[in-house]
Design a protein around this nucleic acid. Structure first.
Lengths: 296, 296
DNA sequence: GTTCTGCTATACGGAAATAGATGAACTCGG
DNA sequence: CCGAGTTCATCTATTTCCGTATAGCAGAAC
């Protein structure tokens, strides 16, 4: 435990964590199994900790290895971001841009925007990371993120492109069958579709509409796509963006005047990427496309 | 430009960027100059871009290299964070914790807190990063940060420990000489000490007190320490935390009822570090110490 | 002008890491 | 019960990489 380990050891360590075995890691890295084994040994010697328990069925990480896991994953993500940036030659729009968005935005809003972006820049590859829970810019897992909360960090380039309105919706035949709720309190008698996890947006919503307690929900799903699908399937009443619901003629908004949540829509990018022509092009395309959606 | 470059090449690249020469980089890495030269050549070949212009007086980075600079700096910071985490053995409070804070917090509030923390955990090293401008957690430049704005990211562990009040202060003899301002508008006739750059906190302040336009400031300084020093030197009237000013008997608050800014005080940590005994100990010590300060 | 110090580029021998092959242990499925 | 398919560990030949030494060049000090 003296000098800094070679960074290559980290890469092998990450591969072993990811693949679960020396052989698998070697395959994924294009190395041979003994090489990866020596890397792991060297890293363990360097930091003075056992990282894996060797079994005949693979290597199982120790607690110490699990503690280090987020860090090497950050290294992996950062080196990937570096390679993306390196592919961005001299102001040309080419290479690959990674975009992070919530599932429903990625599925409902982005496809036409990205198609248009691709048509204008045929050499630009696009990677889409859909997740509702992860802060993708923190670990450089994405170059550009679409957010529903205002970013406060200075190291980020942000642009507010408008707002989306979230309201309660249900399928028409469900309302025909069960009736249309007239008050928020009456919702307790319906099949409500709601969230499971805690995110800032959900906490804010729960604060505004205390009658929507979690145990009232007939179906809890973290995935907003699953919620949307449940609404479309006629399961019951749930939240969804009015811009999305408007496209489905069978969906009807309920309690429009009692329950309306306006969520801002921000596009966020690392300040470092401002010089990248590819990221700027994607950023501007997202701003234009999402702005048009927000305006209706 | 086929397969991924060795990560060691990134390390050498970062060192050359930092040191400005192959020889300097080699010294700082404990390698020799030809090795680093080979690394740079290999990296240039791998990404297909010239990274440095070779001169007799060192290597000067090209635009491409400057674009990649933030990324390799993130790699450096992350690998350092990984090493810190690796030194954290089995729940013991030892190793090193990096704490980021604003200058005035680091100078005025933290020293006794850190001294107490160190007394209780003699094996724990502390690194203090004082900066007013950088988002240190983004690039893992710090393990724990003290913030004046509420963090919104889910991947962070945050605790609000109270609030500090910021008000206008001046030295007693300055007020004796120039008189005590009775209204906010009257401030225009005094020697005002203010900010130069734009931070969220400053923007909020400027919004609340529009009469404090930037061109009114007789002395602009980004460093809040410099502002505090100017106030203490009797330069004029400026902003400073009341908890700080209270310790200097020669400082007097002015316009107490007309100008009072309450800033929340949050301690923020990466979620990944929750398992680290060292970071937890530091986090708790900061929460206790700053909480006591916020309460007066 | 000379010398000294900094830098990069190149050539070459040796050490170190790598690939490849082999063996042993274990799991799974018929 | 046994064979196919994993896995990791060990050994050796080879390739790769690193360090030493040297040359060449530019600027600063004397």
């Amino acid at each position: 435990m003296n000098s800094e380990p070679d960074w290559d050891l980290y890469r092998s360590f990450a591969a072993v964590l990811r693949e679960g075995s020396l052989s698998g890691a070697a395959r994924s890295l294009g190395l041979t199994q003994p090489s990866v084994a020596r890397h792991v040994d060297a890293l363990e010697a360097a930091i003075g900790t056992t990282l894996f328990l060797r079994t005949q069925r693979g290597l199982s990480p120790t607690d110490a290895a699990l503690r280090l896991k987020p860090h090497v994953e950050a290294l992996v993500a950062t080196s990937a971001a570096l390679l993306r940036a390196a592919a961005d030659h001299a102001g040309q729009v080419r290479g690959t841009v990674r975009i992070s968005a919530s599932e429903v935005v990625g599925v409902e809003h982005l496809p036409p925007i990205l198609a248009e972006l691709r048509r204008r820049h045929p050499a630009l590859g696009i990677e889409l990371v859909l997740s509702n829970s992860i802060d993708d810019l923190l670990g450089r897992q994405a170059d550009i993120a679409i957010r529903m909360v205002e970013p406060v960090q200075q190291a980020l380039v942000t642009r507010k492109v408008g707002a989306v309105e979230v309201g309660l919706h249900a399928r028409r035949d469900y309302l025909d069958r069960c009736g249309v709720p007239e008050t928020m309190e009456a919702l307790a008698g319906y099949d409500l579709i709601g969230f499971d996890a805690e995110t800032p947006a959900i906490r804010a919503m729960a604060g505004r509409y205390p009658m929507l307690r979690r145990r009232l929900f007939a179906l809890c799903a973290d995935s907003d796509l699953a919620q949307l699908a449940a609404i479309r399937a006629g399961f019951g009443i749930g939240f969804c963006q009015v811009q999305v619901a408007r496209r489905s003629p069978e969906l009807v908004r309920v309690l429009e005047h009692d329950c309306a949540i306006e969520l801002g829509l921000w596009i966020v990018m690392h300040e470092d990427l401002r010089a990248s022509a590819s990221c700027r092009a994607a950023f501007d395309a997202l701003a234009a496309g999402l702005g048009a959606i927000a305006r209706g």
